[in-house]
């Protein structure tokens, strides 16, 4: 600051409008602390008040960090960070600032201010817009980040809430049968309910194994488990990946084939499954034979069936297939409001 006599002072001269754009939150004061000019955003902080001519000591309570009570104290803190609390404004906002001395004959100071970490609150309280900040100011980024983080956090909260609900539900009703990797009854029921509700056409095949109990009794449960795995493999080969294959009881299976309403095709699939099941299965150096019976129902699109009727019809068809002898396929009919019936 102390420059030798005769040294030419380097400096720039800015019109007030340029200063307002560069530092909308500035104040120019005289050496005595009287306001000579105030930036437009600072003017918004003291809305309705005339600032020019007032002392900066009456506008702000200043600390740096000790309280500044006079202009001598202020001059001593020039070039250092200041903490400022505006006096007489309703909401208590905290600002920080930096004062630099002005060149020229009159002296005085240029004080640039910022809302610092308080900027989101200031923007809300003073209804500030982008135009109240210089484009180089990071305030917009801070606001953006605060809002983006709030949005992400809200999603996180939503996600953990939904996950927690889903976890509880999953613990109660796991959707797969651990032995075969097929779905279980709950998964099958839930899909059936959805298809009925949405009026999507589908075929439902109810398969019951024959002679399975004998395998269990003769060769033990491990062999029985192996046979169930082989059956699951057969079902997977005969159905599409989008079909729902479920083991719903010890040796009972429900297959739901969404979108498949061609009765001939469904009958062919059922027959192929029955044929495959008749092939001998190798278990522990032995070969065992099982068979299966299938009752099936084809529900056309928009049929308005309810799950109970469909299941009852497939049950009745399965019963008829069993009665007709092993390795039989039987079609049933599920019409809303009617008793389930078996097609002769």
């Amino acid at each position: 600051m102390a420059e030798g006599a005769g040294t030419r002072r380097e400096g720039i001269c800015l019109p007030q409008a340029a200063l307002n754009r560069l530092m909308p939150l500035h104040v120019v004061i005289s050496a005595q602390g009287r306001v000579r000019a105030a930036g437009p955003t600072l003017q918004r902080l003291f809305a309705g008040q005339r600032l020019v001519g007032r002392s900066i000591l009456t506008l702000f309570e200043m600390r740096a960090p000790a309280r500044i009570v006079d202009m001598a104290g202020f001059a001593a803190r020039v070039g250092h960070k200041l903490n400022l609390l505006p006096r007489g404004t309703a909401p208590a906002l905290r600002l920080r600032g930096l004062a630099v001395p002005l060149g020229g004959a009159g002296g005085g100071y240029l004080v640039d201010l910022s809302f610092g970490i308080d900027c989101p609150r200031a923007v809300g309280l003073l209804q500030l817009s982008e135009a109240d900040f210089a484009p180089t100011d990071m305030t917009m980024e801070v606001l953006y980040l605060a809002e983006a983080n709030a949005a992400v956090l809200a999603e996180m909260r939503g996600l953990s809430g939904r996950l927690d609900g889903a976890r509880l539900q999953a613990e109660e009703e796991a959707l797969t049968d651990p032995l075969t990797g097929l779905r279980n009854r709950r998964a099958s029921d839930s899909l059936l309910a959805r298809l009925c509700r949405e009026g999507i056409g589908f075929a439902l095949l109810h398969l019951d194994l024959d002679y399975f109990k004998q395998v269990n009794d003769r060769l033990g449960h491990a062999a029985g488990d192996h046979v169930l795995g082989v059956v699951a493999g057969i079902l997977r080969r005969q159905c599409r990946s989008m079909d729902s294959l479920a083991r719903v009881g010890g040796d009972e299976f429900v297959l739901i084939l969404p979108g498949l309403v061609d009765e001939l095709r469904v009958a062919r699939i059922a027959t192929r499954i029955i044929e495959e099941l008749r092939r001998p299965i190798a278990v522990q150096d032995e070969s065992c034979r099982i068979a299966g019976s299938i009752g099936y129902v084809v529900v056309p699109e928009g049929a308005g069936s309810d799950p109970a009727t469909v299941l009852k019809a497939s049950d009745a068809a399965l019963y008829a297939a069993k009665k007709a002898g092993r390795s039989q396929v039987q079609q049933g009919q599920a019409r809303p409001g009617r008793q389930a019936e078996v097609v002769p």
Binding site: V152, E155, M156, L159, R162, L163, A166, L175, A187, L191, R194, L195, R197, E198, I200, S241, M242, P258, G259
Partner: peptide, 22 residues
Amino acid sequence: PRPWGQVLTQVGFMGEGFEPLL
């Protein structure tokens, strides 16, 4: 919600819906 349910069913998606952060 009906057509959306149909989409999920046809796609073979078992969940109730999609999670933005997963």
